[in-house]
């Protein structure tokens, strides 16, 4: 008997406003993406291994070289590690997308009526949710070591990273789509781009120690401004001009990423 009812068409979909169906699509993609992490939370810990190692084995060294000035080295280093996590997380987002593109899962979702931009945002939001869990863990672990918590600053900082992460994630998706079917372009560019972006942003060591040319290069790197803004926010400051620059950089990355990412998805993927 159950076999018979199975052939009946599903209940008709109630008509919704575009905004409601957009957020529903974002939620659908987000839920789908996060389910494996929820089912296997251990995987999250593995992706955290590198930042945690940095926090414990590298962070204490910074105190010795006097980095961070008056704020204390933790106040300086913790936001840097979070920015670093944001750089690596979305890179993985693109990798996951590439895998689903090379398999058939992405195609299956592209023939569904889901909104293309919502598909990008849902995926990056998942990366951000993961980042959020990791950030909370790192902050909690840093507090006993002398990290001073400014809740409002922390919240604002995470928001900044969310915007930046959505943009980076979309760019990473764009790259993944352009790389299909071989995927080589993706691996090449992420290897070549992410590391210099990180090194040239003063995430690990202050750029002040470097020669002038290096500082100049760092100034055109949006990640530098985001890291500077994060550091200001993490000391509880809301008036530092670096915050405006950081917000602007993050917004610019998000705007570019979403525009080109959605365009690529509309144009058709793969072959």
């Amino acid at each position: 008997m159950t076999v018979r009812t199975a052939s009946l068409p599903p209940a008709p979909v109630p008509a919704r406003s575009p905004a409601a169906s957009f957020s529903r699509d974002v939620a659908t993609v987000f839920t789908r993406e996060i389910t494996p992490s929820v089912r296997d939370p251990l995987g999250l810990l593995f992706t955290m291994a590198q930042p945690l190692l940095l926090l414990f084995f590298f962070g204490p060294l910074l105190g010795g070289v006097g980095a961070g000035g008056g704020g204390g080295s933790w106040q300086w280093f913790v936001p840097g590690v979070l920015v670093m996590l944001t750089l690596f997380g979305p890179m993985m987002a693109g990798y996951n997308l590439l895998v689903e593109l090379l398999g058939g899962a992405m195609e299956r979702m592209l023939v569904s009526p889901m909104n293309r931009t919502a598909m990008l945002i849902g995926r990056t939001l998942k990366e951000f949710a993961v980042l959020l869990v990791q950030a909370v863990l790192i902050v909690l672990l840093a507090v006993p070591m002398g990290f001073e918590l400014y809740p409002l600053g922390l919240l604002a900082g995470l928001l900044l990273l969310a915007v930046f992460g959505v943009g980076l994630g979309s760019l990473s998706f764009l790259l993944a789509m352009k790389s299909a079917p071989s995927g080589e372009l993706f691996y090449g560019v992420t290897q070549l781009a992410v590391f210099p972006l990180m090194l040239l942003s003063g995430v690990l060591l202050p750029m002040d120690f470097g020669p002038q040319w290096l500082q100049t290069v760092a100034m055109v790197n949006p990640v530098t401004h985001i890291a500077d803004a994060m550091r200001a926010l993490f000391t509880g400051s809301f008036t530092d001009p670096s915050i405006a620059w950081g917000a602007l950089s993050a917004a610019a990355v998000a705007a570019v990423g979403l525009t080109f990412g959605t365009r690529a998805m509309r144009k058709g993927v793969g072959v």
Binding site: P10, R24, R39, M109, S112, M114
Partner: peptide
């Protein structure tokens, strides 16, 4: 997808269609 359970994928697909 390789890392998603079969039922999870089916549920996600249903939601993708509203």
């Amino acid at each position: 997808s390789d890392h998603h359970r079969v039922r999870d994928e089916l549920v996600a697909q249903g939601k993708a269609y509203g």
